[in-house]
Design a protein around this nucleic acid. Structure first.
Lengths: 194, 194
DNA sequence: GTTTTTCTTGAATGAACCTTCAAGAAAATA
DNA sequence: TATTTTCTTGAAGGTTCATTCAAGAAAAAC
């Protein structure tokens, strides 16, 4: 069966993800990735194929992590409003604590690569669609319990709240004050839940 | 006084802006810019100094154009709600009509370059701050006429509405349906104006 | 018309980039 | 232990990149 690999795939993937997250796709050179992953170019290419495929693997890793987190929040919350409050707050706290505001890897990638119409852009789009579905599920429950103030279709409300995520993410990148982000959070929640 | 330049500065600047807008900073090579501007590398460097300085000039050009447009809308509107409706609709229509969703040059640049902490990132941040001030001015008038439903401080509402711009911009990049964007617009306006 | 100044041209430069690959090292198998 | 298979190494290849610059062209000044 030959020699076994010296590195753990998930571990080096996470390290590559950090690099892309912080510097973007074009801003990350193979040299940067090599240093962060502790792997020589040859090993990177043997394991992942190309720089673009490595990015895709990172996007997938990031997606499944983030969506698992959302589902955890959904399960541990007793109302939809509480769930979205937690989701928004986790974003706000992240943007506030990082000195280098990395924002969201998916949104960053979407804005950087969407025009080039490569695999990166469409993977990002797919991820956002899935997020909207998760948001819709949460709201579906809330509709039954009568928690919603808004009488709009659930998927429109979900889009609005996903838009709030984008607001917070972009504004955080622009180094907005934490209070500003919290105010945006409250105004969005007020629109939906009263 | 010597030979006069054969090109108009504002014209080639606009053409360079289109390139950055469509392909991003790292995605735009001097070769791309050379073709679009119809200028040889030497002339580009003589006129603008470097690729980064050229980007800065483009950002400035874009900013003054966009802000002039906002001020026009403000002047030609009889209420704040009407003004923001026009602002949002101009964004929605742009995102809907372009097959290549360029979005907003400033936001794109911010997300691509904010981490690198070069001049590009801070110029983008400055522009967004100015936009928020314009929004605040519009709302200041509305507060006097009693048009506002929201009782929050004007600059918090302005931040919320600027966030809606980000929502629309990012969601447009993700190729969202026009109806989705319009629904987000309506939910935001409802929060502020009722 | 001559000189001076400035702009234009496009090839050259040197660095940085992504990717490949031959040689060596290590684990598994026989 | 000998062989086979696989992984690791790190330099080399070939491309692309941003930038410079010397030579030529054109406009202004004299």
């Amino acid at each position: 069966m030959g020699r076994t690999a010296e590195f753990e795939r998930d571990l080096v993937l996470e390290q590559a993800m950090e690099v892309f997250w912080e510097r973007g796709y074009y801003g990350s050179s193979i040299g940067d990735l090599k240093s962060a992953m502790g792997l020589n170019p040859g090993s990177i290419y043997a394991a992942f194929g190309s720089k673009e495929k490595l990015l895709l693997a990172c996007l997938e890793h990031y997606s499944s992590m983030a969506q698992a987190r959302f589902r955890d929040i959904e399960r541990s919350s007793s109302s939809a409003k509480e769930a979205f409050l937690k989701i928004f707050d986790s974003i706000i706290n992240q943007m506030d604590s990082e000195q280098t505001c990395r924002g969201c890897l998916i949104i960053n990638t979407l804005l950087e690569l969407a025009s080039h119409e490569g695999a990166g852009g469409s993977a990002a789009r797919q991820y956002l669609e899935t997020n909207r579905e998760i948001f819709s599920e949460i709201l579906e429950d809330a509709k039954i319990t009568g928690e919603l103030k808004s009488s709009r279709p659930v998927d429109e409300i979900a889009a609005f709240l996903l838009g709030t995520v984008f607001s917070l993410r972009v504004m955080g990148k622009a180094k907005a004050e934490k209070e500003t982000l919290e105010s945006i959070r409250d105004q969005s929640l007020n629109q939906v839940f009263g």
